[in-house]
Design a protein around this nucleic acid. Structure first.
Lengths: 190, 190
DNA sequence: TTAATATACTAAACACTGTTCATTTTGTCA
DNA sequence: TGACAAAATGAACAGTGTTTAGTATATTAA
């Protein structure tokens, strides 16, 4: 039942966007009364937090798939590519994971963000291994990891929230956004 | 009257957040009926777009304040500092300008984003002048400008949407977020 | 001054929203 | 079959953005 609710919520969210996910719409799709949902979830925020968790499971799988790459710099770049690909392929998941307010409020309330930290720790490990291989010699692992995350998140969130829509003018650069970004990041690594 | 509505909307937005800005609340604060607002604004989105424009005016002023700096690298860094300071000092404005969905939808509809492009062009000019001074020799101006914007936006939006809340553990780095980020960016410039 | 027009404003309604609660239905175990 | 727990519900509460028909108030023209 929980599954059914979550799947329906995600389906609505993906098909029709955030505003389409109302308790009543979920309920009517599964032919239940709106009140029934509250047997399985405390509130709407709860549903979104669960979907947020599932998004992280998907992202983490995509990122671990790439951990086999031996060269640490190539591994770090592929890690970044996996992140950006995930964001561009699953904009709705990305939205709840990193942009929508609801999960952010829960992160504060719980004072923990397990799934988020798991992904971030993987990034830090990859940065750290680049450092061991002689890169980022003057920088702290934490600082580098954070700025890399910020950069890819910046691209993803500007795109998802439509702030790059008119940028299509400079199509040269923006058609191959991910690869160009990674190339530029590669150039900065030394 | 338009001003009164905008000021009230912004006051509510700043004081009590996005959810507090309802047509009825704005109306009751100015002791008008909700329907009256529709004489001055087409819809709620219209109000937010206007506030979004005002945010850009504020940001642009802050950024031009710094254009007097002669050294192009120092100027670019100060430009970035101004952006980040604006975001951290005016999170609600930043939110409507770069994160909230409403203005994004209008950008698509109008197929233009004047105020956004004005700011972005200033950034490109600063990058370009660094290039003229012998930096970023192997990179395109557009690419550098874009990745710099992404980076600072990434930081700002992760912060504003509460995804750095638990990061306070590593206070060493995160207390002086802006300066540390700029220092790191400085190290990457060559 | 009066009549006509334009502007400003509103009450009421429409179709929604998340959530709660008393009540009923259903399922399981003794 | 009876008892108890779990699941499901209709109805209501208080809220949302927006529309519409109608009224009050200015402004302009004769």
């Amino acid at each position: 039942m929980r599954r059914l609710i979550l799947d329906t919520a995600m389906k609505l969210f993906i098909e029709e966007g955030y505003d389409a996910v109302s308790m009543r719409k979920i309920a009517s799709r599964i032919e239940y009364s709106p009140a029934s949902i509250y047997t399985y979830f405390a509130d709407k925020q709860d549903i979104f937090f669960e979907l947020h968790n599932e998004g992280f499971t998907k992202l983490f799988r995509k990122q671990t798939d790439v951990q086999g790459i031996l060269d640490p710099v190539q591994r770090l770049l592929s890690h970044g590519r996996a992140y950006l690909e995930f964001a561009f392929e699953n904009p709705q998941y990305y939205d709840i994971m990193f942009i929508v307010r609801h999960p952010g409020e829960r992160i504060i309330k719980d004072n923990t963000w397990e799934c988020g930290m798991r992904s971030y720790d993987l990034l830090k490990r990859n940065v750290s291994e680049c450092k061991n291989a002689g890169y980022f010699t003057n920088e702290e692992v934490d600082a580098v990891a954070f700025i890399l995350w910020s950069t890819v998140h910046g691209i993803a969130s500007l795109h998802i929230r439509q702030r790059l829509a008119i940028m299509e003018l400079n199509k040269d650069y923006f058609t191959n956004l991910i690869e160009n970004t990674l190339k530029l990041i590669r150039n900065l690594i030394r």
